[in-house]
Design a binder for these strands. Structure first.
Lengths: 257, 257
DNA sequence: ATGTCTTTGTGAACGCGTGCACAAAGATGG
DNA sequence: CCATCTTTGTGCACGCGTTCACAAAGACAT
């Protein structure tokens, strides 16, 4: 998962577990594909396979929504698409603003993924005067000075931050003050927000680092606990006594830079 | 979190819980910032605040790595940076390939986030002949026909997929066959891979849908279980019998489009 | 040395999420 | 109408992750 939650910790939202909510979009995508192929019904087994999850988990997830589905038959595809869409709030459309139209922001704006289902880009916003007015994804970039007005006039409650890390918290504060209560953050920073505001983050480098960890582990166990791979730079400071009890071997007491 | 894991389920990797691994990059980032400000030591309380987590959790996370830290004082910033880097495998550098240099792929390639810490973009690859040879992020795009050769010659074990959904599984298969064992997937599809291959996914629209869910819930509870907010389209279809027991109200039986 | 004060490291309890396994429900055929 | 077969919905148990709360460890002053 390339995402991290920053949320009020234990709030089981109206009986639907957070883990289930996170999977609903997955089911919805699989169901939409089936719907386009005019498949009328689908079993939990088939749908689970398409969504890449366990069928028992899928059935339990659906049980939180209600008792849709017919024993001996399966689930009605169209009906389920609607139920999940409604549960996720996709039957209304959500105007969003995107702040920070650099490389990433522009790419996101051009990405069709939003508009398709329930989301509408109300405005693209940047702080650079040179960007203002330039069309991106068929829409002129607006200046951040107008942020509050734009949010207010369009009734925006969801904001996407794609600014550099340094500007993110400041932008976040302005969004929240202007009334935004959900934020998707692409900047590599921890945002702090008041209670009642949801933040989800997408962090490329974190994802890669997690992969690197597993990659290293795979390489390591295949080669036994091989020789010392990296003691390049020497550490001048006080040797950290002897008390270290790191799990693997013992620490090299050095920093590679 | 804008990420979802697709992983062998219960493999506690060498004693370090998966949840902890996912937080290490966060700690590392906070520590690096402290290091740049030449802060020598930091307490679990301070660091936890900077990383946006609970201090007890942070201490427990670090306890899996070993007993770094001095009671009454805190943690040595430089030392901890090194230990975490080593644990994550960032003391070596990882060549990666990125497949699919469209809007998103190009933006990712330009994003400095990789190179900075342990990752090196070995090649940008696309299937479109018109793209081949064009420089993106100071590097010529190569054709996908050379995928296997590139992976082999550079010893690549991590791949990033930024292709359209339709091409993703196919690209994934080729990557895996060529020897890649970790994949970061930006395409909105579920990838299936053999055991031993790690996949992490970053999915924009899923993140937005999760936000929409919470947004809807907030709006709903603030207005009591108010009047029907959105019955714009009329549903003509067959009322689905009576047996439905959805939690809220009762089902509308149809899809708004 | 001894005492005080700070902060770590962790035992223990709790809650959430997952998966098994099965009873109940309904379809289908005779 | 009954038997059989399929598939849902869920009770239950288990394991992971989080959090509390505190003892132990060390720094620091006297």
């Amino acid at each position: 998962m390339a995402t991290g939650r920053t949320h009020r910790p234990a709030t089981r939202s109206r009986g639907i577990p957070e883990a289930t909510v996170a999977r609903l979009p997955l089911y919805l995508r699989a169901l939409t594909a089936l719907s386009e192929r005019s498949v009328p019904t689908v079993s939990s087994e088939e749908l689970a396979a398409a969504a890449g999850v366990n069928s028992a988990k899928l059935r339990k997830d659906f049980s939180y929504l209600g008792s849709y589905g017919t024993r001996g038959v399966g689930y009605d595809v169209e009906y389920l698409v609607y139920q999940i869409s409604r549960e996720l709030g996709l039957t209304q459309d959500w105007p969003i603003v995107m702040v920070g139209i650099g490389n990433l922001g522009a790419a996101l704006a051009n990405y069709g993924g939003f508009a398709s289902r329930g989301f509408r880009v109300a405005a693209l916003i940047d702080a650079d005067p040179a960007m203002v007015g330039k069309p991106v994804a068929g829409m002129p970039v607006q200046h951040i000075d107008d942020l509050e007005k734009i949010i207010d006039e369009n009734g925006v409650s969801i904001g996407v931050i794609a600014t550099p890390a340094g500007a993110a918290q400041q932008v976040c504060d302005r969004l929240v003050t202007a009334g935004v209560t959900s934020i998707l953050n692409f900047a590599p920073t921890v945002l702090s927000v008041p209670d009642g505001v949801d933040v989800r983050k997408v962090d490329l480098s974190i994802e890669l680092q997690i992969l690197a960890f597993h990659e290293q582990r795979k390489a390591g166990e295949e080669a036994g606990a091989a020789e010392a791979v990296v003691p390049p730079v020497v550490r001048g400071a006080t040797a950290p006594a002897e008390g270290r009890k790191g799990p693997d071997g013992d620490m090299p007491a050095v920093m590679p830079a």
